[in-house]
Design a protein around this nucleic acid. Structure first.
Length: 551
RNA sequence: GCCCUGGUAGCUCAGUUGGAAGAGCAGCGGGUUUCUACCCCGCAGGUCGCGGGUUCGAAUCCCGCCCAAGGCUCCA
């Protein structure tokens, strides 16, 4: 790897100057091309140690570096306050192309950073009392993509969904169904949505509304998730915590450790002692549990099954984090191994008007409706565009538009174009020969170099995204790659075409391999994000129709 | 009042360990119609919410404040 080579060289130069190089030498690809291909802040970081000013030190370091005659390096310059900038020949990028082709779609960007570690990602976990709405979609897609990202980095991942299938809200749900079945309005505080009316109609007269409704809601949720390609390894039932005694056991354990006390007829958790801002009730004065109690048992159980836990919660649950972390610490778990990611709210817009998500109003944007309207690919990609830390506006019209301002279309189209090149080349009698025989040094066009540079960044971006638990970074990169593909494809004066009279067979081969490497980057990344990488953007009928138009 | 998340170009948003302010869209100016697809290139556009502090260096770290969304039940 080029970075390692440069870091080693910098370390050697520092040592030769009698300095101790920092453990991780700063080295990055500057945004501006005239700052070189790679830039290091080594002189800035060690100037104090050297007792001199950064630029003067940089001069000495550069002299050392130049005496090393580094491979690929064409020039070394000092810039700004004392940055050392390396300008490389393009030769290093051809190695990048070969590596990408070698690892292929399956392993592009994969690493063993977290090999041997287990992690549990819990997401969705909506009450089984109704359909999933578009707001749930963000957490669902984020959780699934994050799980994929963690697998990418070597973790053994469990995707898990928790079912709150006991407690007050289940009864309220059942009562609401029963009321609608009887032709009445649900009682105060009941579920008012249109789906209750519809489901009550479906419901046979001789069944237990709670059990029937539970099964109905669960099936509905599973179907919506399946339409997005989301499947869980574990569906964990809250009831099972009661029936197998885990709930009592964790409560008992808290009592043994004197983490609870009785007051006003209720049982309280001393969560204040572990960072919460107030103590919490575990057992109410009427003897029933609060929702927190089984949840504590549940998370404790998850810790027995995985080394690290990730929870995806909605913004309305953020206040719940300190008490859960407190409870985990009380039970002897490492609170820092519980990572709770909070998804901020998502606003759905259609034709410039907000589509409400509220279950209460009956004006629900169901997740299943959303997927039906814009498709699974656009749904997933759009949700993943932004950091979950910021609120999102989901533009339904934009998500289906076939134009470049639609990032989904733009990115998938890049893949389709690359596939089309290969097909067209084959039709013209140009088949790809083995890579080993290709002369990649013929790739000299600026757009070709830029494409390779972008491709090179991919694995690093994926690594950081996994560490930061930020799938949107991968999305940002794959958009950059798509952009680089389009720019190459559309270069002025047909300078980068694969097929053409003025293109030598050797150059065509090199370009076919460039296209293949870029395609691997796109297909691999999109695939991991759960978005398809199509060979064509248009249906057969649409293509036929277009053929007719051009006659 | 407390907790949490945002505040970066006209708009929507990126911006790992502090290191040389970014993309897309919209605007303006050129070019292109293909390996079929409103595409490409260029230009312009910024007190990184405000004020302090730490540092050789802060959008990034610390303190205070302002604005917006959400949460602060013996609800789930």
């Amino acid at each position: 790897m080029i970075q390692q080579q440069l870091r080693d060289a910098l370390t050697a130069a520092a040592t030769a100057e009698g300095l101790t190089a920092p453990g991780e030498i700063g080295l990055e690809q500057p945004a501006k091309r005239d700052h070189g291909d790679w830039s290091s802040n080594l002189a800035l970081a060690t100037s104090k140690q050297a007792g001199t000013n950064p630029r003067e030190l940089a001069g000495r370091l550069v002299a050392q570096l130049e005496s090393q005659n580094l491979a690929h390096v064409e020039a070394i310059e000092i810039a700004g306050p004392g940055f050392i900038n390396f300008t490389l020949s393009n030769s290093w990028l051809f190695d990048v192309l070969r590596e990408v082709v070698e690892v292929g779609v399956e392993n592009f960007g994969a690493s063993d950073t977290n090999a041997g570690k287990t992690i549990n990602v819990e997401f969705v976990s909506a009450n089984p009392t109704g359909p999933l709405h578009a707001g749930h979609g963000r957490g669902a897609v984020f959780g699934d993509a994050l799980a994929a990202l963690l697998e990418w980095s070597g973790y053994e991942v469990t995707r898990e969904c928790y079912l709150n299938d006991r407690g007050v809200q289940m009864q309220t749900f059942a009562d609401s169904l029963a009321a609608r079945k009887a032709g009445d309005e649900p009682a105060e505080g009941g579920y008012m949505g249109q789906y209750i009316i519809d489901w009550a109609e479906e419901m046979p007269g001789d069944v237990d509304p709670l059990e029937w409704g539970y099964a109905r809601a669960l099936e509905d949720q599973k179907q919506a998730l399946a339409s997005l390609g989301i499947e869980f390894d574990v569906w964990f039932s809250e009831r099972s915590l009661v029936s197998d005694g885990k709930l009592d056991a964790s409560l008992e354990r808290l009592k043994e450790r004197e983490m609870v006390y009785e007051d006003d007829g209720a049982t309280w958790l001393r969560s204040t002692d572990f960072g919460d801002d107030k103590d919490r009730v575990l057992v109410k004065s009427d003897g029933s549990f609060t929702y927190l109690t089984p949840d504590i048992a549940y998370h404790h159980d998850k810790f027995s099954r995985a080394e690290e836990l990730v929870n995806i919660w909605g913004a309305d649950h953020h206040g719940y984090v300190p008490r859960m972390k407190a409870a985990m610490e009380m039970l002897g778990n490492d609170r820092d191994k519980l990572d709770v990611r909070i998804t901020q709210m998502v606003k759905m817009m259609r034709n410039g008007e907000e589509v409400k998500l509220s279950k209460r109003t009956g004006e629900i944007e169901l997740l299943s409706d959303l997927v039906a309207e814009v498709g699974a690919d656009a749904t997933r990609f759009t949700y993943l565009l932004q950091s979950i830390d910021s609120q999102q506006t989901f533009d339904l019209a934009l998500a289906v538009s076939q134009a470049k301002d639609n990032p989904v279309f733009f990115t998938q189209y890049a893949h389709a174009r690359l596939q089309r090149i290969r097909t067209k080349a084959a039709e013209a009698g140009i088949e790809r020969a083995p890579l080993a025989d290709a002369d990649l040094t013929l790739l000299t066009h600026p757009t070709e170099i830029e494409l390779l540079r972008t491709l090179f960044r991919g694995p690093d971006v994926i690594e950081v995204a996994a560490r930061e638990r930020a799938p949107h970074r991968v999305v940002g990169w794959v958009r950059d790659l798509a952009s680089a593909v389009h720019t190459w494809y559309q270069a002025p004066n047909k300078e980068t075409r694969v097929i053409g009279d003025h293109v030598s067979p050797e150059l065509a081969q090199a370009r076919l391999w460039l296209a293949e490497a870029a395609r691997i980057g796109l297909a691999s990344t999109l695939g991991r994000l759960g978005v398809s990488a199509p060979d064509s953007m248009w249906s057969d009928e649409a293509e036929a129709a277009m053929g007719d138009d051009s006659e």
